[in-house]
Write a protein that binds this DNA or RNA. Structure first.
Lengths: 264, 264
DNA sequence: TTCAACCGTTCAGATAACCGAATGACGTTG
DNA sequence: CAACGTCATTCGGTTATCTGAACGGTTGAA
């Protein structure tokens, strides 16, 4: 009976409520980079204030959230720093990618990314910028819809049409006027990407940015890809083909490193 | 009655148990960079396996932890990447420090850090790596005991002896043969640091590494400091004084930026 | 000043999580 | 091949959290 009621509300029966809420708080404060009041968070999460109050007390005591001077707005705390670097250090792909990304950034002179597919999103694991080393860390952890990025399309092109249909959220979200939201057009682009070995994004998530990406071999990093992005002004079709070659080489090099590690 | 029992076990009465456990899991998987089994974590946290099981299910469903192929070892999940970057982006000091750290790294050619005091620990907020092949290992989000680092001593030197006594865990932990564990010696060094405006660490957390640090003004970033580190072979006493000057300038520059922001 | 609109906080009943022991599924060792 | 170690997992009674409404504090407007 109670499991039916829980399922009716969209909850799996064996999920710990307050545990899920802790994670939701972290995601809420994380995605927005925001400073929110208890009441704001309670309404955003559809949770009673009094319940959230006890949870935030716990999180504050352990320094996972901070309270501002006025004592009324929450933001992420210092402990939130720990997990990100630890994830990257424990990850083989991210650990080995460093030199490969450096080389690709050096060769192309443009921004270079390592991304991972997570559900319908692409998450940036690492980034090399042409100039601003300052911003390097800031994009790591960010998410974009897979269908609107070269990285995502490169990874999705490894699956057949039915699997893609199953994996994405329909209808597809539109981020720019050029975002591909038509299912048939997306499937066509994925087939093309599979044939040529690389995928492209032409202003589909950020106006005026073109991006080329290649997925790593499905062996170790099934859901990983490398990309290179630049403003359209520096990315005509000839340059795209040139960069696609460089990115393909880099992806192949990283794939080889990973295979070696797998056999160790 | 129950509050007495809870207090006797060292727990505050108004702490949500499973919320605290979620955070403990994240800290456990984060500090070690480890892959742990359910049983290992349960024993490390002194929590029943069955209770932890439900919590880990919840965390896994939301991709805060990953289960390896064998289905028996947990590690941090992709969501763990989000919080770290968000904390840094929402932080004025970390956001403004970028160019200042770049300049200091350029000027000295050595590793440069921005650190924040959190209880008895120093947490690294940002770093710039040395050009030299031989360089110290560190990472954003990592923690070291404040008394064993130049960053920590620079920040602690802003407090008087009684306050320092209150803030640190006694007896002081020893990380290397040169770690200062004598209370009187530490107080003496802090007084010296306060006089000269900068603090030093001479192989006290990593053998063979010397480090010089300066705290930011107490206005905005009360618990923040900047440091510069190098192997002893590149850090004789003359070089220490030279670098101390550069770090002091950088700290002053960042302090000015922050003050301007505060008045905005 | 007075009122209203927010904020965080408290409390006791309803409800859900927690716990220890028992279970099944592996992989390893004798 | 069997016995053992380790692992995750299940289950019902006990215990804790969760909840909604009411409270006291502060801010800004009338």
């Amino acid at each position: 009976m109670e499991s039916v009621a829980a399922a009716a509300r969209g909850r799996k029966p064996d999920e710990v409520k307050s545990a899920a809420r802790v994670l939701e708080v972290l995601e809420l404060l994380g995605t927005e980079g925001a400073r929110l009041s208890l009441a704001e968070m309670a309404s955003a999460m559809a949770v009673p204030k009094s319940s959230l109050h006890a949870i935030l007390r716990t999180m504050e005591a352990r320094r996972w959230v901070d309270l501002d001077a006025s004592g009324t707005r929450y933001s992420l705390g210092l402990k939130a720093l720990l997990t990100g670097t630890a994830y990257l250090e424990g990850d083989d792909v991210a650990s080995l990618a460093g030199p490969v990304l450096d080389a690709l950034a050096e060769e192309t002179g443009e921004s270079v990314h390592l991304g991972r597919l997570d559900g319908t999103d692409v998450v940036y694991l690492a980034k090399r910028e042409s100039r601003h080393a300052l911003r390097m860390y800031s994009a790591v952890g960010r998410r974009l819809p897979a269908h609107a990025t070269a990285l995502g399309k490169a990874m999705l092109s490894q699956y057949d049409a039915a699997e893609v249909q199953r994996r994405l959220d329909w209808p597809l979200a539109r981020l720019t006027p050029d975002t591909v939201t038509d299912p048939d057009e997306l499937i066509r682009q994925l087939a093309e990407a599979r044939l040529q070995g690389w995928a492209m994004d032409d202003g589909e998530n950020s106006v005026d940015i073109r991006c080329v990406a290649v997925a790593l071999g499905t062996g170790h990093g099934a859901g990983d890809a490398i990309s290179c992005s630049a403003p359209k002004s520096r990315m005509d079709d000839a340059r795209v083909r040139e960069i696609a070659g460089a990115v393909t080489e880099a992806a192949h090099a990283l794939g080889t490193l990973l295979k070696r590690l797998g056999q160790h």
